[in-house]
Amino acid sequence: MDILSTRGLDLWYGDNQALKHIDMDIPERQVTALIGPSGCGKSTFLKTLNRMNDLVPAVRVEGLVTYRERDIYAPGTDVTWLRRQVGMVFQKPNPFPMSIYDNIAYGPRIHGVRSKARLDDIVERSLKGAAIWDEVKDRLKKSALSLSGGQQQRLCIARALAVEPDVLLMDEATSALDPISTSKIEDLITELKEHYTIIIVTHNMQQATRISDTCAFFLLGELIEFGQTTQMFSMPRDKRTEDYITGRFG
């Protein structure tokens, strides 16, 4: 079952074509990794899936992107609804300058949850879901900025979980973190795929092999190869994929 699909997706920044005719079907409740050298379009592609590209001036998207068979670029689409379904975690941890509790409760409050008891419940569940509850449960009222980088990133994951998304996009979510924090987040991703569809952009090929089920290799705005991760890393079909994963360029 495919949850997100693109057909003939083209994207321009001004006159600059950043994505060229991408066809992809992303399977549900799996981890899909997007790999490729810098500037290949993998982050751009990720951001078309929750329309965060709308924020970039002079961006133009053509082709079809569907989420659960609905065209998300159709006129009249409510992007807040889409972004609630398709959550996102960024490269640099970006907790709001508020308390840990208010960070998690921000999304639910926006979407209309008022009751204190329900918010408490959501905060606890989300923090547990992001495997950070035990570390912060005694200081929920403290500023989120007092946490370490790895904790901040897990807090951001918890914040994304709090609005009960369906899909979680992660844009190099571990590249700013130390190895221990990285492995904690990798373990977390593996656990989360039971309930969520996860799409990660990563520079780290070991990470892609460790945690992803499906893998997509981008080069210069084109999707070169897409398939099972194990298959791609053992027997790449395309010469360029082989060159990249064996470290001949990157």
């Binding site: 609905r70 159709a74 009249g76 689409t77 409510d78 807040t80 609804w81 209309g112």
Partner: peptide, 9 residues
């Protein structure tokens, strides 16, 4: 497609 709630709009 779902719409933004009236209150938020």
């Amino acid at each position: 497609m779902e719409q933004l709630s009236l209150h938020r709009r």
